[in-house]
Design a protein around this nucleic acid. Structure first.
Lengths: 144, 144
DNA sequence: TATAAAAATGATTTTCGGTTTCATATTTAA
DNA sequence: TTAAATATGAAACCGAAAATCATTTTTATA
């Protein structure tokens, strides 16, 4: 199994991009968390160890990681683009509490498979799925 | 079965809101299309028949329709909020082409049921589901 | 019916991410 | 070593969502 850095190097070579110290450092920090991070979030984490790296570079690196298949885009509907480690984190879906904003996760290969089947019927090639379920989490249900 | 206007009136009464001519007219136009419309799109349609209605009112009305359960939010990932008739259009899921932006639709009660089951496992009460599948549509696959 | 309180309107401004620009620095192939 | 191309970081720009505000409309009640 290839590492994230290997993926990145392959993608860069394929597209005639150059390596850069900053990008590798940003990748290092990105890989160090299991959370969903926005460019802003990641910048904050990066700054702690590498104060000289700027917002643009983090922003552009995240987009690049996404294109290279290293980062998976997670949109919860608040207009902020967040990313998670696509290789380490298994594809999962979200239960989003409309009351407290808490996000629970679930995975279900059967669901994914059935969606795939529906797509195939329409001759559609799937690259990415997003399943978000909105409602009330157990805690919020209890206190209401 | 209640009409959209009845839903709106019930919601308005429940929340101490007043009626307004503009809002009813905007609803009339919103109901006249089967497309997904943004506030901007809807404004354009509204202006043709009622030129004096402004953007803010359309924008606020759409949000209100959404809260009242009349309009369903559809986000295809370009940062623009679009809405569709929630009562007339059966809940369906989207196949979004990342190349041309075309949106295909599918319904599958089994998928919905399985998602419901996953939610139940986490004691989560579902009010709304969103399944968006990104990838390449048949047309775009053919020409590549 | 008159009226006062509250909500709605529409023009405008503000906010806030995402994205682009540009001068400078770094990387890399030859 | 050097020339061409990419990357960087600060700042500007962009576009849609959301908020503001003076004025108008609605509605409950006297």
């Amino acid at each position: 199994m290839k590492t994230e850095l290997e993926y990145l190097n392959i993608y860069q070579k394929k597209h005639g991009l150059k390596r850069s110290r900053q990008r590798n450092r940003i990748l290092e920090i990105f890989l160090s968390t299991d959370r969903h991070v926005s460019a802003e979030d990641l910048l904050e984490m990066v700054k702690k160890k590498y104060p000289d790296i700027g917002y643009s570079t983090v922003y552009r690196s995240l987009n690049l990681f996404h294109k290279a298949g290293i980062a998976r885009l997670v949109e919860i509907g608040d207009g902020v683009a967040r990313y998670e480690n696509a290789l380490k984190q298994k594809q999962h879906h979200h239960l989003i509490c409309e009351n407290c904003g808490r996000i629970l996760e679930f995975t279900d290969p059967k669901v994914d498979e059935m969606i795939e089947k529906n797509a195939r019927k329409k001759k559609f090639k799937v690259t990415r799925r997003r399943i978000d379920v909105f409602g009330l989490c157990d805690r919020c249900r209890a206190q209401k």
